[in-house]
Amino acid sequence: MYAQLVETGSKRLKTKEEMSPQEREFQEKVDAEIKIEAKNWMPEGYRKTLVRQISQHAHSEVVGMLPEGNWVTRAPTLKRKLQLMAKIQDEAGHGLYLYSAMETLGADRDEEIEKLHQGKAKYSSIFNYPTLNWADMGAVGWLVDGAAIVNQVVLQRTSYGPYSRAMVRICKEESFHQRQGYQILLDLMREGTDEQKAMVQDAINRLWWPSLMMFGPHDDESPNSQQSLAWKIKRKGNDELRQMFIDQTVPQLEFLGCTAPDPDLKWNEETGHYDFGEINWQEFYDVLKGNGPCNRERINTRKKAIDEGRWVREAAVAYAKKQKQRTQAA
């Protein structure tokens, strides 16, 4: 995921004539689908946009561990516990992998994490919602990872080489998470008690709309999208991706025997797509600004971990230094 709202620094696209020769050469390369690599020249806006997007994506992986951490100590069976632990471990791995991709652009991991803790950097708004019952672990896998995959499959073709390659690897693991999440829900709906089935519907009711918000504002409300599309950092618009997600998800919802909390959701024979109701954009912008149910808790938890771990990291550095001196002295 999670190019929800990434500032590009430009409100209007430059024409070819307005570009410098370097910029023009860069744009021609992008247009020809030639990947940009770390050592290549790139416009400053392109570099900054990528740093923002990749760091936002990495922060999302790391913050995204928290709503799952909320249930990993309470997973109901050994199998489910092991699955959830493996998923969380994958997410930490994705975070590391993405921070590395970001660092190829000259950005510093610690500095970007500091921006997150100061509330200056974003992460996917979905993780500011609480996970309130066990079925949320299924619904997060199915809906949240599902929405992320729709975004990320397209990002495998993003113009920046290291990011594109990170996406290829991450997509494979997330598809697995999504199937696993869906299976949790399916098992509960097929063999569960009435109380367990109610958990599933409750989880879907709470996570449905926030999942749709993961694709970001309408394209006409998203001034940065045009530049990101021209640079091929983004490959498809927010609305198109959201529609793809809805179209693939609704049949799965019906197969579960559950409903979405959207009275306007229905198949449109003419367009060949599902129609759906309007997203509560006020809520979207509120959560983005820090006023979601768990924004404070999520950031505080991350900040506390890094602050309280400072002495540990300092010790590791000091020890490595001593070891180096010992090796040199020997």
């Binding site: 790391v62 930490a92 590391l96 990291r313």
Partner: peptide
Amino acid sequence: CELCGKAPALEEELALMNVAL
């Protein structure tokens, strides 16, 4: 598992969960 999201570094996050797993 209780330490999920609370490790002193992301590398440790990965390692702790790995050992737990």
